[in-house]
Lab assay of single mutants.
Amino acid sequence: MKHYEVEILDAKTREKLCFLDKVEPHATIAEIKNLFTKTHPQWYPARQSLRLDPKGKSLKDEDVLQKLPVGTTATLYFRDLGAQISWVTVFLTEYAGPLFIYLLFYFRVPFIYGHKYDFTSSRHTVVHLACICHSFHYIKRLLETLFVHRFSHGTMPLRNIFKNCTYYWGFAAWMAYYINHPLYTPPTYGAQQVKLALAIFVICQLGNFSIHMALRDLRPAGSKTRKIPYPTKNPFTWLFLLVSCPNYTYEVGSWIGFAIMTQCLPVALFSLVGFTQMTIWAKGKHRSYLKEFRDYPPLRMPIIPFLL
């Protein structure tokens, strides 16, 4: 059985960083990364991007050496992705923050609204209902991160945790300040508006959870398998008939419901920014589905049925 020789060059300087002799033909890129780490321990596998061309796409960890368009002496180019952190850690951090930050404003801890309001309670029912909904949303997200989601990528750049936390924590503080303010004004149409908004919120939260469970069942634990998601017997998953990412559709719907319930401008802005970002993600995933699966359902749109 022939063996391969693998040289790894710096993608920027073309400097030879490592030479691997007698590499098995069936070795994966993940195994080559581990061998590279032995000579350069500062670059652990998650930091490494190996590619066939200095400006090309990163090879997948599961790619097999003998199936790549290389000879028995293969040249790979290395790029440092920077310090990495696990997706689970990032999600837990960015979701735990809003949960606790919101509660600080809800309980009106000292130095927020003035001494005479310390630890007082709002007289408006919608304020307490909003706290329950907000807390439920982020507790749900935390539990899904721990027990439901299966991540195709193990890590992301460390800098992302600061960007994500600034976004989630900042908006949580902004909306919580106004919703729990002693001078907060309840919704214009009173109980009817709150009940309608609560119904929207609850339905969308159930829908979002149902989609996450359906997506989880598509991917076996520990794998990166991708399949076309289809509706199940659960009615909340029937939205798969019309959109590629109904989890985002339901998520946006939840925040629209919360915005109607609280009639709070920061919540509306958070919903708008979230919708914009999720639309970008949904379009990317939709394109990926179309590219990977020739039999992908043609009627589906990325996030909004028939429109977007």
Rank of each mutant, 00 (worst) to 15 (best):
D10R: 03
P246I: 15
L242N: 08
F105G: 15
G82V: 07
T249A: 10
P229S: 09
M301T: 12
G274C: 08
Q193R: 10
G170I: 00
W87S: 05
V194N: 12
L299D: 01
A30R: 09
F171K: 04
F270L: 07
A172H: 03
F201P: 04
T249P: 06
A176E: 04
T237W: 00
W169M: 00
V90S: 12
K67N: 12
G56R: 02
F78P: 13
V70L: 10
K16D: 06
L308H: 08
L290Y: 07
R287L: 10
L104Y: 02
S49C: 01
H40W: 03
Y230M: 07
C133N: 00
K55Q: 13
L215F: 15
G253V: 07
A46W: 01
P305L: 03
I139F: 12
V148E: 02
A173S: 10
Y177V: 04
T39P: 08
V23G: 09
I203T: 12
V267M: 11
L17I: 09
P98N: 14
S122G: 08
P157H: 02
K60N: 09
F270V: 04
A30Y: 07
P229T: 06
W43G: 11
F236G: 01
Q193S: 08
E62W: 00
L269P: 05
G170E: 10
M261N: 03
Y95D: 05
K140T: 02
G82K: 15
V243I: 15
K2W: 05
H286N: 06
R150P: 01
I112T: 09
N164K: 03
Y77F: 06
F100T: 00
L142D: 11
I260N: 10
V127R: 06
L103M: 05
G207D: 01
T89V: 10
V267A: 10
I32K: 09
W255P: 15
H149M: 05
K38P: 04
L206P: 07
F136C: 03
L146Q: 01
G222E: 10
A197K: 15
Y248L: 15
A83G: 09
R14F: 13
V202G: 10
A11T: 07
V127S: 03
G170K: 01
L103S: 05
S152L: 06
Q205M: 15
K55D: 00
G257W: 14
P98H: 03
L52R: 12
H26S: 13
Y184G: 15
D295G: 11
T13V: 05
C131I: 01
Q192D: 05
A214P: 03
V194P: 15
A130D: 02
I304M: 06
I256G: 00
I32L: 13
A173G: 05
L65M: 04
H115E: 03
Q193C: 02
V64Y: 15
F147V: 13
K195N: 09
P98K: 02
E94H: 05
H181C: 14
A96G: 06
N208D: 05
L299K: 11
E31V: 07
P246F: 01
V194D: 00
A191V: 11
G190T: 13
N234T: 11
Y77R: 01
V6E: 14
K291R: 11
F151L: 10
P25T: 03
Y4V: 13
M175V: 10
V6A: 10
G154D: 08
I8H: 01
L81E: 01
P187D: 13
Y4M: 00
A221P: 10
E292I: 13
M213E: 15
T262K: 07
Y95L: 03
L299H: 01
L81P: 08
V6W: 01
C133V: 07
A268S: 08
A176Y: 04
L239Q: 05
P110H: 12
P25S: 08
F119I: 14
L50T: 12
Y102G: 04
F136R: 00
Q192T: 14
I8M: 10
E7A: 10
R216W: 07
T72D: 03
F136Y: 13
A214R: 00
I280V: 12
Q48E: 13
Y250Q: 15
F201N: 14
A197D: 01
E7H: 01
T28P: 10
A83V: 12
R150Q: 13
L9Q: 06
A173D: 01
A282P: 03
P298S: 10
G190L: 06
Y117S: 13
T93V: 12
I303R: 02
M175S: 04
V70S: 13
F100A: 12
F201T: 09
K283E: 12
P186G: 02
T28R: 02
R14C: 02
L68E: 15
T262N: 12
L17P: 07
Q66E: 02
K224V: 07
A214I: 15
N234S: 08
V127M: 07
L50N: 01
H134D: 00
A11R: 07
P98V: 12
T125D: 13
F105D: 14
P187R: 07
V202I: 15
I303H: 01
D295N: 08
L269M: 07
V252W: 15
I8G: 01
